[in-house]
C-alpha cells in the first residue's frame, strides 16, 4: 500500500470543515491512541478512532467518510473524556456523520423506514429519537 501525500489534500477545505463543525483541532492529536484503547465499540469498527484522526491529518477525508466506524460510535464520550490533549473524537465523529447526512447521502447503517416494529413499540422513546437524530439526520 502506498500513499502519495498531496499538499492540496492536506489543506482540503472539507477537512477544515470537519474541524469547524467539531470544534476540534486535528493537529492537536499526537496519536497516543487512548481514544481507541477505551472505545467500547471498537470491535465493530473498520478503522479505529485514532486512525480516523490520522487519516484526516494526512488528507484522506473520503476514506474516513466511507468508513463503518463513524456509524458505529455511540457517542458515549469516553474517548473525549480521557484524551490527554483534549481532542474530542466523539465530536469529530458527529461532524463526519453530519457531513454525510446533510448531503442526503444514504446511511449504510440505518434507514428510518427500517426501524423495527419492536423498537417502535418497545424501546424507550429517547432511544428511538436519539438514533434517528444521530444516524439519520
Amino acid at each position: 500500500m502506498r500513499l502519495t501525500i498531496k499538499t492540496e489534500e492536506l489543506r482540503d477545505e472539507l477537512i477544515r470543515r470537519v474541524e469547524d463543525l467539531s470544534r476540534q483541532s486535528l493537529l492537536q492529536c499526537y496519536q497516543c491512541g487512548k481514544c481507541s484503547a477505551g472505545c467500547p465499540v471498537v470491535d465493530e469498527m473498520d478503522v479505529i478512532p485514532s486512525e480516523i484522526i490520522r487519516l484526516l491529518q494526512i488528507g484522506r477525508l473520503e476514506e474516513v467518510l466511507n468508513s463503518k466506524t463513524i456509524w458505529v460510535c455511540a457517542s458515549c464520550l469516553q474517548c473525549a473524556s480521557r484524551c490527554p490533549k483534549g481532542v474530542e473524537f466523539s465530536n469529530i465523529c458527529d461532524a463526519l456523520r453530519q457531513m454525510v447526512l446533510r448531503k442526503r447521502l444514504s446511511n449504510p447503517r440505518m434507514d428510518a423506514d427500517e426501524v423495527s416494529a419492536i423498537m417502535i413499540s418497545d424501546a424507550p422513546q429517547m432511544g428511538v429519537v436519539a438514533a434517528l437524530r444521530k444516524l439519520n439526520g
Binding site: 467500547p40 465493530e44 455511540a74 458515549c76
Partner: peptide
C-alpha cells in the same frame, strides 16, 4: 460501571 450500555445503537444495531 461507567462504560457504555450501547445507548441508542440498540435501535440501529
Amino acid at each position: 460501571k461507567t462504560e457504555c450500555c450501547g445507548g441508542f445503537q440498540i435501535v440501529a444495531d
